[in-house]
Simulated assay, not measured.
Amino acid sequence: MPGTHETTAETETGQVLSAAQKAGPALVAAHRLLGRELGALAAEESRTGSSSKDRTATLRRKKLLLRDVSRHLADAVSTVALLAGLEACGVHGQYPQDAAGRPRTELAPLEGLDSDTYLEALARLSRAVEALRQVYLPTVKNPDLAHPEDRPAMAEAVTHLRTAYDVLAAWVDDDDDEDEDQAATLGRMMAELESICAPLPVPQVDLSDEDVIARVLADPRLAARTGRALRQQRQVPSAGAAT
Score class of each variant (00 low, 15 high):
residue 6 E to A: 14
residue 7 T to F: 04
residue 8 T to G: 06
residue 8 T to R: 08
residue 8 T to A: 09
residue 10 E to S: 07
residue 10 E to T: 10
residue 11 T to F: 12
residue 12 E to C: 00
residue 12 E to M: 14
residue 13 T to M: 00
residue 14 G to C: 08
residue 14 G to P: 03
residue 14 G to K: 06
residue 15 Q to N: 11
residue 16 V to N: 08
residue 16 V to D: 00
residue 17 L to E: 13
residue 17 L to W: 12
residue 18 S to D: 02
residue 18 S to T: 11
residue 19 A to M: 08
residue 19 A to I: 11
residue 20 A to D: 03
residue 20 A to T: 10
residue 21 Q to E: 11
residue 22 K to A: 14
residue 23 A to S: 15
residue 23 A to D: 12
residue 23 A to L: 10
residue 24 G to R: 13
residue 24 G to M: 11
residue 24 G to E: 07
residue 25 P to S: 11
residue 25 P to M: 08
residue 27 L to F: 04
residue 29 A to V: 06
residue 29 A to N: 05
residue 29 A to S: 07
residue 30 A to H: 02
residue 30 A to D: 10
residue 30 A to S: 15
residue 31 H to A: 11
residue 31 H to Q: 04
residue 31 H to M: 06
residue 32 R to C: 01
residue 33 L to A: 07
residue 33 L to E: 00
residue 34 L to R: 11
residue 35 G to P: 02
residue 35 G to R: 03
residue 35 G to K: 02
residue 35 G to H: 01
residue 36 R to I: 00
residue 37 E to P: 03
residue 37 E to M: 11
residue 37 E to L: 05
residue 38 L to E: 10
residue 38 L to Y: 13
residue 38 L to V: 15
residue 39 G to R: 05
residue 39 G to P: 04
residue 39 G to I: 06
residue 40 A to T: 05
residue 40 A to R: 06
residue 40 A to F: 06
residue 40 A to P: 13
residue 41 L to Y: 10
residue 42 A to M: 09
residue 42 A to I: 11
residue 42 A to Q: 09
residue 43 A to I: 05
residue 44 E to S: 15
